[in-house]
């Protein structure tokens, strides 16, 4: 039954090429183009100004693509990916309210399964967007290396592989967290625009809360800080995965708090959306 829901939602989403383009392809390719253009610009300007590249860029040291890929995996939950994935999420989650098509499919499966089917397809879409972004950011790394004449190395150790895997999973959870807020907004308001903008508003609010946190006396080891700001929880876990000096400064027990925060911000909106949808009057679309 869940397979039917995922199959049909995937089929429908693939017919909506506009939503797929904006959700999956726009940000990675724009980022790639800007990155390459920026590298060319910097090189040209630097050569014009001083005949040399700025410190840091002019390094003759090799570019370790293994490390670069792991870092890219940690940057997949960026605002560009999140914002444009919401186009697909809003279409998928609120489309049946927008086009009054719930009554066509609600008779063909149970409501929780229909909702989980949508979430399943959104996971696939998010993974696709992340993988495309990973690919284009890796291409951008290679292109920048070529532009700045840096030699390449590719260190593939257990440590890099583990970092890459953990950072990728962490970014995926962070992306899904936003998409679950979109789901709840879609089901609760029945509005495509709300599904698109409410997660953005929540994200912006959390950003400003994070900026104000020190003034409010909230430290990273506070339960309230971790629970109110899943972005902080995400950054905490990212730091712990990367290790090093910064990780060693984090207080003990903060990992559990961050994990609980991420889990709550993902599962609570999902559970609330399913519970609300199960009792929703679908004749009022």
């Amino acid at each position: 039954m869940l397979a039917d829901a995922i199959r049909s939602e995937t089929y429908r989403l693939l017919q909506n090429r506009t939503a797929v383009f904006w959700s999956v392809f726009f940000v990675p390719f724009i980022a790639l183009a800007l990155s390459i253009a920026g590298a060319f610009l910097i090189k040209t300007k630097a050569e014009q100004l001083a005949g040399e590249l700025p410190p840091g860029l002019a390094t003759s040291g090799p570019l370790d693509l293994g490390v670069a890929f792991a870092n890219n995996a940690g940057g997949l939950a960026n605002p560009g990916i999140l914002a444009f994935l919401l186009i697909g999420a809003a279409t998928l989650y609120a489309g049946d309210y927008r086009w009054e098509t719930w009554r066509l499919i609600s008779a063909r499966n149970t409501r929780p399964v229909l909702m989980l089917g949508k979430v399943g397809v959104m996971k696939i879409l998010a993974l696709a967007a992340m993988l495309v972004f990973l690919l284009t950011s890796s291409i951008a790394d290679i292109a920048r290396g070529l532009i700045f004449d840096r030699p390449f190395t590719f260190s593939v150790g257990i440590s890099q592989a583990a970092d890459f895997g953990l950072l990728f999973v962490l970014s995926f959870v962070r992306v899904m967290q936003f998409l679950m807020i979109s789901l709840l907004a879609a089901v609760f308001t029945r509005s495509l625009l709300a599904a698109l903008f409410i997660p953005l508003v929540v994200g912006v609010a959390q950003f400003f809360l994070g900026e104000a946190a020190p003034a409010l006396g909230l430290g990273p080891d506070d339960w309230s800080a971790q629970l109110l700001m899943p972005g902080l929880a995400f950054d905490t876990l990212k730091t712990l995965i990367k290790g090093g000096m910064e990780a060693s400064t984090l207080p003990d027990g903060v990992m559990i708090k961050a994990l609980v925060s991420l889990a709550l911000w993902t599962l609570v909106p999902l559970g609330a959306a399913i519970a609300w949808f199960t009792r929703q009057d679908l004749s009022k679309e």
């Binding site: 039954m1 397979a3 039917d4 829901a5 199959r7 049909s8 089929y11 429908r12 017919q15 066509l104 499919i105 063909r108 499966n109």
Partner: peptide, 8 residues
Amino acid sequence: QWLALAHG
């Protein structure tokens, strides 16, 4: 096609 898939 979409509705047929939804129906399994």
